Computed example of a mutant assay.
Amino acid sequence: MSFRQAFGEVGETKPSFWKLHLLGWSFYVLIFTIEYAAFNSSAANANYLILFPLLFSGLVGGLLTWPLRYIYGHLSKGAPLQVLIVIITVCMLIAAIWTPIKNLLLMYFFDNITVYDLYRGNHPNDFHIGELFLTITYSFFMIMVWSCLYFGINYHFKLLYEKQLHLEAIRLSHVAQIKMLRYQINPHFLFNTLNAISTLVLRGDKTTANGMLARLATFLRFSLDNDPEQKIRLNDEIKALMLYLDIEKTRFAERLNVKFNIDVAAENLLVPGLLLQPLVENAIKFAIAQMETGGVIEVSAKIHNNLLHLTVADNGPNSDSIPSSKEQLRKESQQGGVGLKNVVERLQVLYAENHQFSIHKSTLTGCVVNIVLPAELPA
């Protein structure tokens, strides 16, 4: 997922201001209509008449609170105390405007008293102008609730956005690390292959050298065409490994024999690209190259308990320098070669603790590398 896609997802999940604004004030009208009807059931006509002043009251409240989104929008970088003072001040100001309007609406609908009547003095004898500001505290808290919801909702989605940025940064960091580790393979392998080609040219074996160059081009094209971040099917990984082995068989001829034991059910599972090649290259360098004849490398893949078990074993001479753990492998990477260290680090980045890697001496001769991965199928 790209940064732009991540930003789009966060933006799409956040409802628009107008939708929330309309729903909030509609809820206000609905709740107080139900409340009035429930506590004034004896009044024959009051139950539906109260809906009209509440509708106008909600409309006025919505119009008065609408500009607050622009005022509050400039408070995000202010000091907390200043923000609180501004919020309380504007809430009091709006409550002082909204309360008399609400009371005038109620007087008009229930007592047929208009603003003009009040101006002319045509009102009940016990009426006092202060009655227009009754329930101002209630109005103040209603506006405060609106303000708290505004800040709360915006803060919630701001946290989601910041979290998405953080996850995107981690993802990009992992991608960069994976690419760095994957691209270590090509120069390392390329150096060995070009050395072999150079030797063939010096010996005058141009035909073999040309064939080796053609195979090298095919292998590198496969490597460059595959995104290091993406996993590939095990079957495709085996094909890439065979491209590499075609090159190495040119160097070692009958000294190198490779046996494959791949379960059919495992062929479609996903693995990191060029995972097996460094392991086989390491076996060739530290086992087959040390033998004059009869070198064998076995590559197997099996499914057990919904896990993919990959094994690369050779029959080379045992050596005390074989690292027995990932920790030792990191410390003694020069003894184990760049390939093994590269594989260990890539698996750690891609699977964290959800994988197993082990390397040990075989019972008779040689070295065995075991990798256990989750059994992932293509989407």
Rank of each mutant, 00 (worst) to 15 (best):
E12V: 12
K239C: 08
A379S: 12
S324P: 06
A287Y: 09
K19M: 12
V175N: 08
T218L: 07
S324A: 06
G316W: 02
M144L: 15
T293D: 02
D117N: 13
M1C: 02
Q184F: 04
H304P: 00
I71L: 06
F52A: 10
F286Q: 10
E298N: 13
K102Q: 15
E345H: 04
I247C: 03
Q5D: 06
S173D: 03
T137F: 06
A379I: 14
L274R: 15
N122T: 07
L159R: 15
I101K: 00
G339V: 07
Y138A: 07
A44Q: 13
R233S: 04
L275Q: 07
V299H: 04
K249D: 01
K19N: 11
W146K: 04
Q184S: 11
M144A: 10
N354T: 10
H156L: 13
N354F: 07
G130M: 09
P80K: 00
I143H: 14
E12R: 15
F56R: 04
K14W: 05
V175R: 14
G8W: 06
H174E: 09
P323D: 01
E229Q: 11
K179A: 12
I50P: 14
A46Q: 11
N125P: 08
T250S: 02
A209F: 09
V368C: 07
H156T: 14
P15A: 04
I143F: 13
I71G: 01
F39P: 00
T293G: 05
Y351A: 03
E237G: 05
L22S: 12
T250M: 05
G130D: 08
F222M: 15
L55Q: 02
R171P: 03
E345A: 06
Y70P: 00
L165Q: 12
K302V: 13
